[in-house]
Nucleic acid binder design. Sequence first.
DNA 1: TGCCAGTACTATGTGGTACCAGGTACCGCT
DNA 2: AGCGGTACCTGGTACCACATAGTACTGGCA
Lengths: 108, 108
Amino acid sequence: MDDLTEMLKGTLEGCVLEIIGSEETYGYAITRRLNELGFADVIEGTVYTILLRLERNGLVQVTKRPSGVGPPRKFYALNDAGREELAKFWAKWQYLSSRIDMLKEGGR
Amino acid sequence: MDDLTEMLKGTLEGCVLEIIGSEETYGYAITRRLNELGFADVIEGTVYTILLRLERNGLVQVTKRPSGVGPPRKFYALNDAGREELAKFWAKWQYLSSRIDMLKEGGR
DNA sequence: TGCCAGTACTATGTGGTACCAGGTACCGCT
DNA sequence: AGCGGTACCTGGTACCACATAGTACTGGCA
């Protein structure tokens, strides 16, 4: 698939929120999950910047835990603000995608 | 609706391409069309920057015509490269939206 | 023991895009 | 002459995904 980076702006963060919301997890695993979901070109650095942003914006609760197979992991879970943000993301996504699909169907 | 600007990145240009592709038209009218399609906050300046970019990238053919109700209009039509770009846009959109919907359905 | 691959996170800088703010200019009507 | 509607352009800003480089912990292998 062609380069999706521009299209991912605004949506990738929502995807990360959704992944965190479904299960407490950490950056490295999130990257792998995104890759297997079809976001093949998303790279670790990108995910970490998103995670730091989420933390800075107070949307997640962070817990550091030792790993056994490497350095300690930072596990992320959504807090109330995060869940609210996630709901907003899906509302926006549905709004946008419905409009785009309308446009595609020649909606006039 | 909340602020969509980040989510529009990469898609708004495709929307403009689609509108131009369905009918030769001009900036002011494109803005109105986007607004009535539900992209309520998209403003003229944004559309013009997109149109200039399309022109610079050789995706459109431009024709200036007098208006009768104001200054002359710059009409835009897709050329072959533009139609190709539009097809690519829809492919990317479908790819992305299908993955996002999979994620939403808890696709694992 | 030394080295390497895999795991895991951080920091800085870049490019692209939508948006903002302000400006220019043409037209018809009052 | 002034004003609202039409129509376009431009310089600057903010934000985001991405690139790049660096740090650091673990286990396996020669």
